[in-house]
Structure formats: C-alpha cells, structure tokens
C-alpha cells in the first residue's frame, strides 16, 4: 500500500499488531504472569507492553514481533521492580557488600517453594534472579537491563543468591522436601 507523504506524520495504522495480537497476547502474558506472581500486575504490564508497541509502530519502527514484545515486557518488569525498589529504599538498609562469598550450596530446589521465596525478596534481588535464572540470560545482558556494570551485577547476583538461600532455608518444611 502506498504511503503518500501527506500521511508521514500520522502513518496509517499497521494492521500487523492487531493481527499478531491473538497469538502474541498469551505469549506476553505467559511471560509476565509467573514473573509477577500477581494477575492484576501482569495485566497492567501486558497492556503497557502492547501500548508501547502501538507507539513504536506509530514512530515508524519495524513491524512488531513476539520476541520484540517479550523484550519490552521484560523492560516493563524491570521498570516495575526499580520503582518498587526506589519506594522501599528508605525503609530498609541498603544491602552493602557484606557477603561477597558464598558457601557451596548443592540443594535441589523445590520449584514451587522457590517461586514463593522469590516473591518475598527485595525487588532488586528478585529482578536479578529472575533475569539471570528464570529468563536464563547471560550476566552481561542482565547488567544491561538493570543498567549496572558487569562487576556490580555479579556482586548483586551473589547477594541475591545469598538472600534467596537464607529465605529458602528459613521456610524449609520440617518433613524435608516432598
């Protein structure tokens, strides 16, 4: 279809996004829901993700793909945790570089319990662990997403794993893993 210059400011809406919607919606929502743990939040971030795609298409960006949407959803999630972290920062001590080593830990994680533990961690720790392990991203990508240096991200991951382990072990059921 033609794109007359008179429409360059308000390009015709690309039907691409809506035709992609039915297929992409469960993918984006399916990415966000287990990482948010809350339906309402997952819905909000899903909506933000798709509305961002509308804006990107209006700005003449390339056609939206599911992979691009998941990437935006990940950014939305990181933004959410950063907001939470800013709000909580005044309430708790900044976790300094106290523990820089880890004891070896060779536990077999109970996935359901691990997920509950993740929700209880601070937003910063949760973000780092989610991106590194749930999303299985290499550390440099985690660093880029969190806007930290590689070194700071590695240190953050050590602290996050330690915090996770402390929380995980404190919720251990008396009967052991079932």
């Amino acid at each position: 279809m033609g794109s007359p210059r008179s429409r360059a400011v308000a390009p015709p809406p690309d039907p691409g996004l809506l035709s992609l919607y039915d297929r992409a919606l469960p993918e984006v929502y399916g990415y966000l829901l287990p990482r948010c743990g809350q339906r309402a939040l997952a819905e909000d971030l899903t909506a933000e993700t798709f509305l961002a795609a509308v804006r990107a298409e209006a700005d003449g960006g390339p056609p939206t793909t599911v992979a691009w949407l998941i990437g935006v959803a990940r950014h939305k999630l990181v933004d959410h945790w950063r907001r939470l972290e800013r709000e909580e920062r005044g309430l708790r001590l900044l976790d300094g570089g106290a523990h820089h080593s880890e004891d070896p830990w060779d536990d077999q994680l109970d996935i359901l319990r691990a997920r509950e533990v993740l929700v209880q961690l601070s937003p910063g720790h949760r973000a780092a662990l989610t991106l590194r392990y749930l999303d299985d991203l290499p550390v440099p990508r985690v660093a880029a997403l969190l806007g930290r240096t590689l070194h700071a991200t590695e240190a953050l991951l050590v602290r996050a794993r330690t915090a996770f382990r402390i929380q995980y072990e404190s919720t251990e059921q008396p009967g052991g893993a079932s």
Binding site: L25, P26, G30, R161
Partner: peptide, 30 residues
C-alpha cells in the same frame, strides 16, 4: 553456586489471560 538456580529456568509458556481483559485490551489497542 549457580547450579541449584539453574532449575529455575522458565521459558515463557503461553497463558491465556482472562477473556474480558483480552477483549478490553484489544479494543484499547485498536
């Protein structure tokens, strides 16, 4: 130290949201 955490890997599995939400968002996008 990362080994226990590797079992957390969670590839995105499609989940259909509440149909009412899906319809409302589609309309918002439109």
């Amino acid at each position: 130290p990362e080994r226990p955490f590797r079992s957390l890997a969670r590839p995105a599995v499609p989940v259909s949201p509440d149909p009412a939400f899906a319809t409302a968002l589609r309309e918002r996008l439109r």
